[in-house]
Amino acid sequence: MTDADAEPTVLARASGGLGQLTLNRPRAINALDLGMIRLAHEALDAWEHDTEVDIVLLDGAGERGLCAGGDVRGLAERVNDGRAEETAQFFREEYALNARIAEYPKPFVAFADGITMGGGIGVAGHAAIRIVTERSQLAMPETRIGFTPDVGGTWLLGRAPGRVGEYLGLTGAVMDASDAVYAGFADHFVPSENLDGLRDALETRADPSSPTELVLLFDETPPPPKLAEARAWIDDAFAAETVPEIVERLRALSADRSLSERQRDETRATADLLGELSPTGLAVTLASVRRSRELPGLRDALAQEYGLVMWFATTQPDLPEGIRAQVIDKDRSPRWTPATLAELDPDAAASALAFQPETPLWD
């Protein structure tokens, strides 16, 4: 599959022992479609047993980011047309790529420079060495479209410190480089102006230094993470058992004079945001992140997410409605079903977690 300029939408080239994999849909901030996923698999197939390739590097074309996520317009079309098997096929191949990156037998380095969200986390967040820059913007924003974090995002969210995972998963908050390292979504901060130098070092290394040792030559200490400053109120509010109770705690904290004015504003804004998002998406996301925390591995988290995304895609109106409101019509006025947390079936999350797709994720 190619973009308007007729170039492949994934560029794969090997030089000096470095296999470079570049997502190449810059006009769409390299959003993933099925063709790109297959091209990435083909390159990894070719390099896995190629003795001339020692390291794999993933980056994105253009100045805006590594990857803005998956092709949600295409997802909405498949859901609205009732093409469940095509939807399932996309997720199966995407999740296989996510797992493969995590398990790849050669060092896998990802440059999460610029926007890296949703499906972008799936290809960068499970790499062996994850690089962020001062331009990085990382997020799992699925609740904004009435959906739930996937691509192994709940595996990462479940292992973030304290209740940061619940906070990031429910709100879809954007992390800068400092927050991404703090939350466990990245490993190293490298200024964007040094990425070319790091890329050259990985390709032309004159000694058998490990990729990590080379990265450390370019690594710098990022500023203090904002998430660390907010941990006290995040841990307090997002430890509550249900989403309505989280909102209730946030409202109470917004009136707590022991907090700074900025913290009170943050808790108030967070409560307001949760009141605007899909009640179903929020409840399922909270349950999914917490259950992922108890799972033994990434593949188990991906299997859980696969069941959830197929539950949304085949039984829930909020997913296509959220994509319509945020991406297609852009009226930012989704009509959720149900409309409020008070109207949500208390067993909704349990029903979602119990859902069994017709075609399993792993054969």
Rank of each mutant, 00 (worst) to 15 (best):
A4N: 07
A4S: 07
D5Q: 09
R13H: 09
A14G: 14
L18C: 06
L18M: 02
G19S: 13
G19L: 03
I29P: 02
N30Y: 06
M36A: 13
A40M: 15
W47Q: 02
H49M: 10
E52A: 12
D54A: 12
G60H: 09
G62I: 11
L66A: 03
L66E: 08
C67Q: 03
A68S: 12
G69N: 04
V72M: 10
E77H: 09
R78K: 13
N80R: 15
D81L: 15
R83F: 05
R83P: 10
R83W: 06
T87L: 07
E94P: 07
A96H: 09
A96W: 03
R100N: 06
V109H: 03
T116C: 14
G120A: 10
G122A: 11
A124W: 04
I131D: 03
I131K: 01
T133G: 09
L138R: 03
L138Q: 03
F147A: 04
V151H: 10
L156G: 00
P161M: 11
L168M: 08
L168P: 02
A173S: 13
A177W: 06
A177R: 08
Y182I: 05
A183S: 07
A183M: 12
P191T: 03
P191A: 03
P191E: 05
L195C: 07
E203V: 11
R205C: 14
S210I: 07
T212Y: 08
F218Y: 15
T221S: 12
P223C: 01
A228K: 14
R231N: 05
A232T: 15
I234Y: 04
D235E: 13
D236A: 10
A237N: 09
F238W: 00
E241P: 04
T242Q: 01
T242P: 05
E245S: 12
E245M: 08
E248A: 14
L250C: 04
A252R: 13
S254Y: 04
D256V: 07
L259Q: 13
E266C: 04
A271V: 01
A271Q: 04
G275T: 12
E276H: 06
T280N: 02
T280L: 04
L286V: 01
A287H: 01
R293G: 10
L295H: 06
L302V: 02
L302Q: 01
W311Y: 14
F312P: 05
A313S: 13
T314F: 11
T314I: 01
T315S: 15
D318L: 05
P320E: 00
Q326E: 07
R332E: 00
P334L: 01
R335H: 12
L341A: 05
E343N: 00
P346S: 06
A350W: 05
A350R: 09
L353K: 09
T359E: 12
T359A: 15
P360D: 12
